[in-house]
């Protein structure tokens, strides 16, 4: 069964390994250590993980920008290492950084991309106009991109990736740095084009709501390997029971130990001022949780109960919340481990 589905994979990575040297006398940094996943044709596949987990390195290898140390990858059935030229005709690439020429207009950027993909001048013009209209850039189409807002420039980046109607589109953190309205417009557009154009999309993101909303399947990546893979629903249902979340007035490393004594609560973690746990019946677990904390003299500002979210899935596999990476108290992080 699995083998049959795999043969239809539009995108497949097997045991990718990639290390970067960081200079003389320094140990090389391992970006990927045996990363594998595959995505079926016409679906949106999400790669979710903290910064530095290996998402961008994976995209670089799959899009022929970088070469893996070992392992293999296939795009639309074409081996990336053996035939990078054919892979490049099949893919669209939207990098994390903008990839537009700021000195040129949107139309000029799009026409150049189309012509390099072998489109005739007429086809390229028609397609450029279509994309400019679809992304609402018509008023700015003949202005240099350097005058665009962040959201407009990002839309043009995506339009450039779509210009030649690729079979596989790479979207590396497409909504990072966008305001909420621009982000929701972008989501709408990504969902629509994946459906309309029968395109396979590889989406990397560190926004859980983005992955939850857009991805048909997703892989959580941490330290260069896939730590969990499945549909967002599968991943959520793997977590049994309700999530209990208690906000403390101040971080307190005693909190996990105190809550260990509450029998119905399991998988207790401390993340800054937030203590999380899991229980089969949230309504019955909450009173003893609060009582235990009060008894230990730990002040509580709020307590919530929730059905499992992708956030919980992520937290369980990566060990911390995606949006708080890097700006936490190191002691609290230590305590959480």
């Amino acid at each position: 069964m699995v083998a049959v589905r795999r043969s239809e994979a539009a995108l497949e990575a097997v045991d990718l390994v990639k290390t970067y040297s960081t200079g003389r006398n320094k140990p090389p940094v391992t970006a990927l250590q045996g990363l594998s996943f595959w995505a079926a044709k016409g679906t949106v596949f999400g790669l979710l993980g903290p910064n530095g987990a290996g998402k961008s390195t994976t995209v670089k290898i799959l899009s022929t920008l970088a070469v893996a140390d070992s392992g293999s990858a296939r795009i639309a059935g074409i081996d990336v290492a053996a035939r990078p030229d054919r892979v490049r005709q099949a893919i669209g690439f939207v990098a994390q950084k903008p990839g537009t020429d700021p000195m040129e207009t949107a139309t000029e950027n799009l026409l150049l991309a189309g012509r390099l993909h072998g489109m005739s001048r007429r086809d390229a013009k028609a397609r450029a106009r279509e994309l400019i209209d679809r992304f609402g850039l018509a008023d700015a189409a003949n202005r240099p991109v350097s005058t665009y807002s962040g959201g407009m420039a990002r839309k043009l980046d995506v339009a450039l990736g779509l210009m030649h109607r690729p079979q596989v589109l790479f979207l590396d953190e497409p909504t990072t740095g966008l305001d909420p309205q621009a982000r929701s417009e972008m989501w709408h557009e990504i969902a629509r084009m994946a459906g309309d154009e029968q395109m396979t999309v590889l989406l990397t993101t560190h926004y859980l709501d983005e992955a939850d909303r857009l991805a048909d399947r997703l892989a959580i990546v941490d330290h260069g390997t896939v730590v969990a893979e499945g549909t967002p629903e599968d991943l959520k249902s793997d977590l049994r029971g309700d999530a209990v979340q208690v906000e403390l007035a101040a971080t307190d490393s005693r909190a996990p130990a105190v809550l260990q004594r509450v029998p119905v609560l399991r998988e207790i973690t401390l993340d800054g001022c937030t203590v999380r746990g899991r229980t089969d019946d949230g309504a019955r677990a909450l009173p003893p949780v609060l009582a235990a904390l009060e008894e230990a003299g730990i002040a509580v500002t709020s307590a919530t109960l929730a059905r499992p979210s992708l956030d919980d899935v992520y937290l369980r596999h990566v060990g911390h919340s995606p949006l708080t990476v890097g700006d936490e108290d190191p002691k609290a992080l230590e305590a959480a481990k």
Partner: peptide, 11 residues
């Protein structure tokens, strides 16, 4: 400007 990466992933 990221233009190089985009050109290198194109044909």
């Amino acid at each position: 400007r990221g233009v190089m990466d985009r050109l290198l992933t194109s044909p």
